[in-house]
Amino acid sequence: MRAEALKGHLDALLLAALEEGPRHGYAVKETLRETTAGRLDLPTGTIYPALHRLEQAGLISGTWSVVAGRRRRTYQLTQHGQTALADARQSWREFAEGISSALRSTPWPATT
C-alpha cells in the first residue's frame, strides 16, 4: 500500500493497534503488519514519530521498562485516546460509505 493512502489515517491505525492493551513500539508495528496481512509494513521511522506525537497529544501514555538489559517504551491508550479512536472509526465508516456509494452508482451524464 502506498504511503499516500495512509495520510490522515495513521493515528487511528496506531490507536487501534493499542486497543487490546499496552504494547512497545515494535509490537505496534508488528500488529499493524499482522492485522493487515502484510499490507501495512511501515518503517520504524514512520511509527515512532507518530507514537511520540500521539503521546504529546495525550491520546496515549508511555512508560519505560528494562527488558533483557535494554530500555523499552511501552504505550497504552488513554481515555482521550479511546474516545478519539471511536470518533475515527465513525468518521471512517461515514467516509467509506460515501465513497462506496459514489463508486457503485451509475456513471454521471457527460456535460457538453
Rank of each mutant, 00 (worst) to 15 (best):
E30A: 02
A27Y: 01
S65N: 01
G69R: 06
L13W: 03
L13C: 09
R53E: 07
D11E: 11
L6M: 12
G69S: 07
E97M: 15
A12M: 13
D11N: 12
G58W: 03
R72V: 15
A3W: 10
R70S: 08
A110Y: 02
A68P: 00
S100H: 08
D87L: 15
A17D: 06
G58Y: 01
G25S: 06
T112C: 12
P43G: 00
R93D: 02
E4R: 07
R73T: 01
T63Q: 12
A96L: 14
A86I: 09
A102R: 09
K29W: 08
S101E: 12
G21S: 14
A12N: 02
G8P: 04
E4V: 05
S101D: 06
G58D: 02
A88C: 06
G8Q: 10
A17Q: 04
L54H: 00
A84T: 09
S105P: 05
P49F: 12
Y26K: 15
E20K: 14
G38Q: 10
L51T: 00
T106I: 04
G58Q: 09
P43T: 06
T112L: 11
Q82T: 08
G45R: 10
R70I: 05
S65I: 01
E34Q: 13
S61H: 07
W108T: 11
T31M: 12
G81C: 10
A88V: 10
T44Q: 03
S101L: 13
Y75E: 14
K7H: 05
T46G: 04
T46D: 08
S100K: 10
R2G: 06
R2Q: 12
G21K: 11
L59R: 04
E30G: 04
W92H: 13
A96E: 12
L103Q: 10
G38R: 05
K29H: 03
W108K: 14
T44K: 05
R70D: 13
L18K: 04
G69C: 09
S100N: 13
F95R: 09
E94S: 08
D87N: 04
P43A: 04
R53N: 08
A3C: 07
A37I: 10
T78C: 07
S100E: 13
R39T: 09
R104P: 01
S105M: 12
E30H: 06
